[in-house]
Nucleic acid binder design. Structure first.
Lengths: 153, 153
DNA sequence: TATGAAAACAAAGTCTC
DNA sequence: GAGACTTTGTTTTCATA
Protein backbone atom coordinates (compact mmCIF):
# COMPACT_ATOMS: atom_id res chain seq x y z
CA UNK A 1 0.00 0.00 0.00
CA UNK A 2 2.79 2.37 1.04
CA UNK A 3 3.87 3.41 -2.42
CA UNK A 4 0.38 3.30 -3.85
CA UNK A 5 -0.53 6.41 -1.91
CA UNK A 6 -0.91 9.15 -4.47
CA UNK A 7 -1.33 12.90 -4.34
CA UNK A 8 -5.11 12.69 -3.92
CA UNK A 9 -4.75 10.27 -1.02
CA UNK A 10 -2.34 12.64 0.66
CA UNK A 11 -4.73 15.55 0.26
CA UNK A 12 -7.49 13.49 1.85
CA UNK A 13 -5.21 12.42 4.71
CA UNK A 14 -4.27 16.04 5.24
CA UNK A 15 -7.89 17.03 5.62
CA UNK A 16 -8.64 14.13 7.95
CA UNK A 17 -5.63 14.93 10.11
CA UNK A 18 -6.68 18.55 10.38
CA UNK A 19 -10.32 17.86 11.16
CA UNK A 20 -11.75 14.37 11.19
CA UNK A 21 -15.24 15.68 11.94
CA UNK A 22 -15.64 17.24 8.49
CA UNK A 23 -18.25 15.67 6.25
CA UNK A 24 -17.28 13.63 3.22
CA UNK A 25 -18.86 16.25 0.97
CA UNK A 26 -16.70 18.95 2.49
CA UNK A 27 -13.51 16.92 2.11
CA UNK A 28 -14.45 15.96 -1.44
CA UNK A 29 -15.01 19.61 -2.33
CA UNK A 30 -11.69 20.70 -0.81
CA UNK A 31 -9.63 18.05 -2.58
CA UNK A 32 -11.46 18.57 -5.85
CA UNK A 33 -13.29 15.28 -6.08
CA UNK A 34 -16.64 13.87 -5.06
CA UNK A 35 -18.16 11.75 -2.36
CA UNK A 36 -17.86 8.22 -3.76
CA UNK A 37 -14.18 8.17 -4.76
CA UNK A 38 -13.14 9.93 -1.55
CA UNK A 39 -15.10 7.46 0.51
CA UNK A 40 -13.54 4.49 -1.32
CA UNK A 41 -10.05 5.84 -0.79
CA UNK A 42 -10.66 6.38 2.92
CA UNK A 43 -12.04 2.88 3.30
CA UNK A 44 -9.04 1.35 1.55
CA UNK A 45 -6.57 3.32 3.65
CA UNK A 46 -8.37 2.29 6.81
CA UNK A 47 -8.17 -1.36 5.79
CA UNK A 48 -4.49 -0.99 4.93
CA UNK A 49 -3.81 0.56 8.33
CA UNK A 50 -2.63 3.86 6.92
CA UNK A 51 -5.49 5.52 8.77
CA UNK A 52 -5.66 4.36 12.37
CA UNK A 53 -7.55 5.47 15.42
CA UNK A 54 -9.98 8.38 15.24
CA UNK A 55 -9.66 10.41 18.41
CA UNK A 56 -9.97 13.76 20.11
CA UNK A 57 -7.05 15.72 21.55
CA UNK A 58 -7.73 16.66 25.16
CA UNK A 59 -6.18 19.56 27.02
CA UNK A 60 -3.90 18.12 29.72
CA UNK A 61 -4.00 21.24 31.90
CA UNK A 62 -7.80 21.20 32.05
CA UNK A 63 -7.59 17.68 33.36
CA UNK A 64 -5.08 18.58 36.02
CA UNK A 65 -2.15 16.93 34.23
CA UNK A 66 0.18 19.84 34.66
CA UNK A 67 3.55 18.11 34.58
CA UNK A 68 5.30 16.58 31.60
CA UNK A 69 8.63 14.76 31.84
CA UNK A 70 10.96 13.31 29.26
CA UNK A 71 12.81 10.45 30.88
CA UNK A 72 16.18 9.22 29.60
CA UNK A 73 16.84 5.66 30.67
CA UNK A 74 20.13 3.77 30.67
CA UNK A 75 20.31 0.14 31.60
CA UNK A 76 23.04 -2.43 31.96
CA UNK A 77 20.73 -5.41 31.82
CA UNK A 78 20.26 -6.14 28.18
CA UNK A 79 18.79 -9.61 28.61
CA UNK A 80 15.64 -10.37 26.70
CA UNK A 81 13.87 -11.14 29.95
CA UNK A 82 14.58 -7.73 31.44
CA UNK A 83 13.46 -5.93 28.31
CA UNK A 84 10.26 -7.93 28.16
CA UNK A 85 9.34 -6.90 31.69
CA UNK A 86 10.33 -3.27 31.17
CA UNK A 87 8.16 -3.02 28.05
CA UNK A 88 5.20 -4.53 29.83
CA UNK A 89 5.42 -1.96 32.60
CA UNK A 90 5.58 0.90 30.09
CA UNK A 91 2.60 -0.37 28.12
CA UNK A 92 0.55 -0.92 31.23
CA UNK A 93 1.18 2.52 32.72
CA UNK A 94 -1.25 5.10 31.27
CA UNK A 95 0.94 8.06 32.25
CA UNK A 96 3.57 6.86 29.77
CA UNK A 97 2.42 8.48 26.54
CA UNK A 98 5.49 7.61 24.51
CA UNK A 99 8.30 5.12 24.80
CA UNK A 100 11.10 4.57 22.32
CA UNK A 101 14.09 2.28 22.27
CA UNK A 102 17.09 4.30 21.13
CA UNK A 103 20.37 3.82 19.34
CA UNK A 104 23.41 5.00 21.29
CA UNK A 105 24.31 5.57 24.91
CA UNK A 106 20.82 6.21 26.13
CA UNK A 107 18.68 3.11 25.82
CA UNK A 108 15.16 4.44 26.15
CA UNK A 109 13.27 7.70 26.17
CA UNK A 110 9.84 8.09 27.73
CA UNK A 111 7.32 10.88 27.71
CA UNK A 112 5.32 10.90 30.92
CA UNK A 113 2.28 13.04 31.75
CA UNK A 114 1.29 13.40 35.39
CA UNK A 115 -0.53 15.70 37.81
CA UNK A 116 2.62 17.04 39.47
CA UNK A 117 6.18 16.27 40.55
CA UNK A 118 4.91 14.03 43.33
CA UNK A 119 2.97 11.94 40.86
CA UNK A 120 6.09 11.60 38.74
CA UNK A 121 8.05 10.38 41.72
CA UNK A 122 5.36 7.83 42.45
CA UNK A 123 5.68 6.59 38.90
CA UNK A 124 9.47 6.55 39.12
CA UNK A 125 9.48 4.62 42.40
CA UNK A 126 7.01 2.11 41.01
CA UNK A 127 9.12 1.69 37.89
CA UNK A 128 12.46 1.03 39.59
CA UNK A 129 10.73 -1.32 41.98
CA UNK A 130 9.60 -3.48 39.08
CA UNK A 131 12.74 -3.41 36.95
CA UNK A 132 16.40 -2.65 37.60
CA UNK A 133 17.59 0.53 35.90
CA UNK A 134 21.17 1.73 35.77
CA UNK A 135 20.60 5.44 35.27
CA UNK A 136 17.62 7.75 34.88
CA UNK A 137 17.56 11.39 33.91
CA UNK A 138 14.25 13.22 34.07
CA UNK A 139 13.82 16.35 31.99
CA UNK A 140 10.98 18.56 33.17
CA UNK A 141 9.03 20.44 30.55
CA UNK A 142 8.50 24.10 31.43
CA UNK A 143 6.53 24.96 28.34
CA UNK A 144 4.94 22.99 25.55
CA UNK A 145 5.95 24.99 22.50
CA UNK A 146 4.42 22.63 20.02
CA UNK A 147 2.55 19.36 20.16
CA UNK A 148 0.89 17.85 17.16
CA UNK A 149 -0.14 14.47 15.83
CA UNK A 150 -0.18 15.76 12.27
CA UNK A 151 2.45 14.08 10.14
CA UNK A 152 4.05 16.03 7.31
CA UNK A 153 2.52 14.89 4.00
CA UNK B 1 -13.98 24.52 34.07
CA UNK B 2 -11.01 22.42 35.22
CA UNK B 3 -12.43 21.37 38.58
CA UNK B 4 -15.98 21.16 37.33
CA UNK B 5 -15.12 18.03 35.39
CA UNK B 6 -16.89 15.21 37.15
CA UNK B 7 -16.81 11.44 36.89
CA UNK B 8 -19.37 11.36 34.09
CA UNK B 9 -17.37 13.87 32.06
CA UNK B 10 -14.27 11.75 32.48
CA UNK B 11 -16.09 8.65 31.31
CA UNK B 12 -17.26 10.51 28.21
CA UNK B 13 -13.76 11.84 27.54
CA UNK B 14 -12.39 8.34 27.89
CA UNK B 15 -14.77 7.06 25.26
CA UNK B 16 -14.03 9.93 22.91
CA UNK B 17 -10.29 9.46 23.28
CA UNK B 18 -10.57 5.78 22.51
CA UNK B 19 -12.85 6.18 19.51
CA UNK B 20 -14.20 9.51 18.41
CA UNK B 21 -16.19 7.93 15.61
CA UNK B 22 -18.63 6.27 17.99
CA UNK B 23 -22.16 7.58 17.91
CA UNK B 24 -23.61 9.60 20.74
CA UNK B 25 -26.10 6.81 21.45
CA UNK B 26 -23.26 4.33 21.84
CA UNK B 27 -21.28 6.60 24.17
CA UNK B 28 -24.42 7.37 26.16
CA UNK B 29 -25.14 3.69 26.60
CA UNK B 30 -21.58 2.92 27.71
CA UNK B 31 -21.44 5.69 30.30
CA UNK B 32 -24.95 4.95 31.52
CA UNK B 33 -26.72 8.06 30.35
CA UNK B 34 -28.64 9.20 27.30
CA UNK B 35 -28.06 11.22 24.18
CA UNK B 36 -28.99 14.74 25.23
CA UNK B 37 -27.05 15.07 28.49
CA UNK B 38 -23.99 13.49 26.90
CA UNK B 39 -24.23 15.85 23.96
CA UNK B 40 -24.56 18.87 26.25
CA UNK B 41 -21.50 17.84 28.23
CA UNK B 42 -19.47 17.36 25.08
CA UNK B 43 -20.53 20.74 23.74
CA UNK B 44 -19.58 22.47 26.99
CA UNK B 45 -16.20 20.78 27.13
CA UNK B 46 -15.55 21.73 23.53
CA UNK B 47 -16.36 25.36 24.28
CA UNK B 48 -14.15 25.28 27.38
CA UNK B 49 -11.27 23.89 25.33
CA UNK B 50 -11.06 20.66 27.30
CA UNK B 51 -11.84 18.82 24.08
CA UNK B 52 -9.71 20.05 21.22
CA UNK B 53 -9.06 18.87 17.71
CA UNK B 54 -10.76 15.77 16.34
CA UNK B 55 -8.28 13.89 14.24
CA UNK B 56 -7.11 10.55 12.84
CA UNK B 57 -3.81 8.91 13.75
CA UNK B 58 -1.87 8.03 10.61
CA UNK B 59 0.78 5.33 10.32
CA UNK B 60 4.13 7.06 9.76
CA UNK B 61 5.76 4.00 8.15
CA UNK B 62 3.03 3.74 5.53
CA UNK B 63 3.74 7.32 4.58
CA UNK B 64 7.45 6.71 4.27
CA UNK B 65 8.31 8.55 7.50
CA UNK B 66 10.59 5.87 8.82
CA UNK B 67 12.91 7.88 11.02
CA UNK B 68 12.14 9.47 14.38
CA UNK B 69 14.62 11.59 16.33
CA UNK B 70 14.54 13.14 19.75
CA UNK B 71 16.73 16.21 19.65
CA UNK B 72 18.30 17.70 22.79
CA UNK B 73 19.19 21.34 22.29
CA UNK B 74 21.47 23.50 24.39
CA UNK B 75 21.87 27.18 23.71
CA UNK B 76 23.91 30.01 25.17
CA UNK B 77 21.85 32.77 23.65
CA UNK B 78 19.02 33.32 26.06
CA UNK B 79 17.90 36.66 24.66
CA UNK B 80 14.21 37.06 23.97
CA UNK B 81 14.95 37.78 20.35
CA UNK B 82 16.77 34.51 19.80
CA UNK B 83 14.04 32.51 21.47
CA UNK B 84 11.38 34.19 19.41
CA UNK B 85 13.09 33.21 16.20
CA UNK B 86 13.83 29.67 17.36
CA UNK B 87 10.19 29.12 18.28
CA UNK B 88 9.00 30.42 14.95
CA UNK B 89 11.22 27.96 13.10
CA UNK B 90 9.94 25.04 15.19
CA UNK B 91 6.32 25.99 14.67
CA UNK B 92 6.77 26.45 10.97
CA UNK B 93 8.53 23.13 10.36
CA UNK B 94 5.99 20.29 9.94
CA UNK B 95 8.55 17.56 10.73
CA UNK B 96 8.77 18.92 14.29
CA UNK B 97 5.93 17.10 16.01
CA UNK B 98 6.82 18.18 19.53
CA UNK B 99 8.89 20.92 21.10
CA UNK B 100 9.29 21.61 24.79
CA UNK B 101 11.29 24.17 26.71
CA UNK B 102 12.96 22.41 29.62
CA UNK B 103 14.21 23.10 33.10
CA UNK B 104 17.88 22.27 33.67
CA UNK B 105 20.98 21.89 31.56
CA UNK B 106 19.23 20.97 28.35
CA UNK B 107 17.16 23.87 27.09
CA UNK B 108 14.84 22.25 24.57
CA UNK B 109 13.74 18.83 23.42
CA UNK B 110 12.23 18.19 20.00
CA UNK B 111 10.58 15.19 18.45
CA UNK B 112 11.19 15.10 14.73
CA UNK B 113 9.64 12.72 12.17
CA UNK B 114 11.34 12.42 8.78
CA UNK B 115 11.78 10.03 5.83
CA UNK B 116 15.35 9.02 6.71
CA UNK B 117 18.65 10.16 8.21
CA UNK B 118 19.34 12.36 5.21
CA UNK B 119 16.06 14.19 5.71
CA UNK B 120 16.97 14.73 9.35
CA UNK B 121 20.28 16.22 8.36
CA UNK B 122 18.52 18.56 5.95
CA UNK B 123 16.31 19.68 8.81
CA UNK B 124 19.29 20.07 11.13
CA UNK B 125 21.29 22.10 8.61
CA UNK B 126 18.30 24.34 7.93
CA UNK B 127 17.77 24.83 11.66
CA UNK B 128 21.32 25.86 12.55
CA UNK B 129 21.40 28.12 9.54
CA UNK B 130 18.47 30.07 10.90
CA UNK B 131 19.42 30.21 14.59
CA UNK B 132 22.65 29.82 16.54
CA UNK B 133 22.70 26.70 18.69
CA UNK B 134 25.41 25.82 21.18
CA UNK B 135 25.00 22.06 21.30
CA UNK B 136 22.73 19.48 19.71
CA UNK B 137 22.35 15.79 20.54
CA UNK B 138 20.16 13.69 18.29
CA UNK B 139 18.74 10.46 19.69
CA UNK B 140 17.59 8.05 17.01
CA UNK B 141 14.57 5.91 17.76
CA UNK B 142 15.09 2.26 16.87
CA UNK B 143 11.65 1.13 17.93
CA UNK B 144 8.45 2.85 18.92
CA UNK B 145 7.40 0.85 21.94
CA UNK B 146 4.40 2.99 22.73
CA UNK B 147 2.80 6.08 21.27
CA UNK B 148 -0.54 7.35 22.40
CA UNK B 149 -2.47 10.59 22.59
CA UNK B 150 -4.73 9.17 25.28
CA UNK B 151 -4.31 10.99 28.56
CA UNK B 152 -4.82 9.10 31.81
CA UNK B 153 -8.21 10.01 33.26
C1' DT C 1 -14.78 -2.41 -17.84
C1' DA C 2 -13.69 0.95 -14.67
C1' DT C 3 -14.81 5.35 -12.69
C1' DG C 4 -17.47 8.98 -10.93
C1' DA C 5 -22.06 11.20 -10.36
C1' DA C 6 -26.34 10.78 -8.29
C1' DA C 7 -29.95 8.97 -5.76
C1' DA C 8 -31.77 6.16 -1.88
C1' DC C 9 -31.59 4.39 2.52
C1' DA C 10 -30.03 4.08 7.11
C1' DA C 11 -27.95 6.19 10.79
C1' DA C 12 -26.27 9.86 13.41
C1' DG C 13 -25.96 14.77 14.82
C1' DT C 14 -28.42 18.75 16.52
C1' DC C 15 -31.91 21.26 18.72
C1' DT C 16 -36.54 22.01 21.11
C1' DC C 17 -39.60 20.90 24.56
C1' DG D 1 -34.77 12.24 28.84
C1' DA D 2 -38.00 11.68 24.77
C1' DG D 3 -38.75 13.02 20.27
C1' DA D 4 -38.57 15.85 15.79
C1' DC D 5 -35.80 17.56 12.33
C1' DT D 6 -31.66 17.89 9.66
C1' DT D 7 -27.44 16.44 8.09
C1' DT D 8 -24.25 12.87 7.10
C1' DG D 9 -22.48 8.14 6.26
C1' DT D 10 -23.09 4.21 3.45
C1' DT D 11 -24.65 1.48 -0.29
C1' DT D 12 -26.59 0.83 -4.66
C1' DT D 13 -27.63 2.19 -9.14
C1' DC D 14 -26.85 4.47 -13.35
C1' DA D 15 -24.38 6.94 -16.89
C1' DT D 16 -20.21 7.77 -19.20
C1' DA D 17 -15.64 7.53 -21.17
Amino acid sequence: MADQIDAMDRKILGELQQDASQSLDEIARKVGSSKTPVWNRIRKMREAGVIGQQTVILDPESLGLEACFFVLVRTNAHEANWQEKFLQVLKRRPEVLEAHRLAGEIDYILKVRVRNAKAYDDFYQALIKEVAIYNVTALLSMEEIKSTTMLPL
